[in-house]
Nucleic acid binder design. Structure first.
Lengths: 107, 107
DNA sequence: TCGATGCTTCGATCGTTGTCGATGTAATCA
DNA sequence: TGATTACATCGACAACGATCGAAGCATCGA
């Protein structure tokens, strides 16, 4: 087993030190809300891989301010990125970050 | 792709319906705390796959009541199971439940 | 039966968070 | 410039959650 690359801490390998645990918990905490999970799944299912905020508000049944709040949390967790183009801000999924979290809980 | 087995909803497949999102969020929410992640990693690293509460209190630097609280949350999320044997309660990891959560965030 | 040990539950505190409505800001269009 | 649209931020509120100390169970040994 390649011990060399310590890119991503894993819950299932050696006991997690407190710092790694805090960092990982930040990521999983962002996944711990139904609205945010649905945002991610909508982004993953979008044909172009991008969705603007206005197209999230209706389906998710939350106000625009609330959706913006959740997108900020997802962004701070590194799970999504926003790109302003004209009046719209297009959000897309960060597959690498998601893969890193997945890697943290696989044996 | 085998559409047949719909055992575990995935964030990255079709858009999540609200009910599935709530259920998945419950699991990820349990992972969204540093103390709980360290509990899981200690369980995974334990030679016998089991640890009693008294052996978690010291390393995690929390009171026994707090550790018990976190174990209850992990248990309700299906991530750990407790087994009373004599004076001790031995906790172990539910690898299947963890794998299901992992499966929910893989493409 | 009585104490000691391991764990759970309870009550209280205090910070966090999901939500809304309202306001602010940026970009576009007339 | 002014109006409109898209999004972010703010203030407030209620609900939740992490934590502790203390009290309550359960089990074992003497």
């Amino acid at each position: 087993m390649a011990e060399a690359l310590e890119c991503c801490p894993s819950v299932l390998a050696a006991p997690l030190d407190p710092g790694e645990a805090v960092e990982l918990a930040r990521g999983f905490h962002a996944l711990g809300d139904p609205v945010r999970l649905r945002v991610l799944s909508m982004l993953a299912a979008a044909p172009t891989g991008e969705i603007c905020v206005c197209d999230l508000v209706g389906p998710l049944g939350r106000t625009q301010g609330t959706i913006s709040h959740h997108l900020r949390i997802l962004g701070e967790a590194g799970l999504v990125h926003g790109d302003r183009r004209g009046k719209w801000v297009w959000y897309s999924l960060d597959h690498d970050r998601l893969a890193a979290l997945k890697g943290a809980i696989e044996g």
